[in-house]
């Protein structure tokens, strides 16, 4: 019983920590690679084809 309750607390605490960490360092993939170092779309857009 004590082990179970401790585990609930640890999992809950870790989830909160992870959430705060992710929100703090959140960055969209498009922002991260806006310098063009990674090509996210390896094909032309529809109006570039025109």
């Amino acid at each position: 019983m004590k082990a179970f309750v401790t585990a609930v607390a640890v999992v809950g605490f870790s989830a909160v920590l992870t959430y705060v960490g992710l929100v703090t360092f959140d960055q969209s993939t498009a922002q991260r690679y806006e310098d063009g170092s990674v090509v996210l779309l390896d094909h032309p857009t529809s109006w570039e084809v025109d």
Binding site: K2, A3, F4, T6, A7, V8, V10, V11, A15
Partner: peptide
């Protein structure tokens, strides 16, 4: 022991989640 059970439940709860 306590550490064994605690680890089991921590992994189990995470797995369920």
């Amino acid at each position: 022991g306590f550490v064994e059970r605690g680890t089991h439940w921590m992994t189990a709860l995470s797995f369920l989640g």
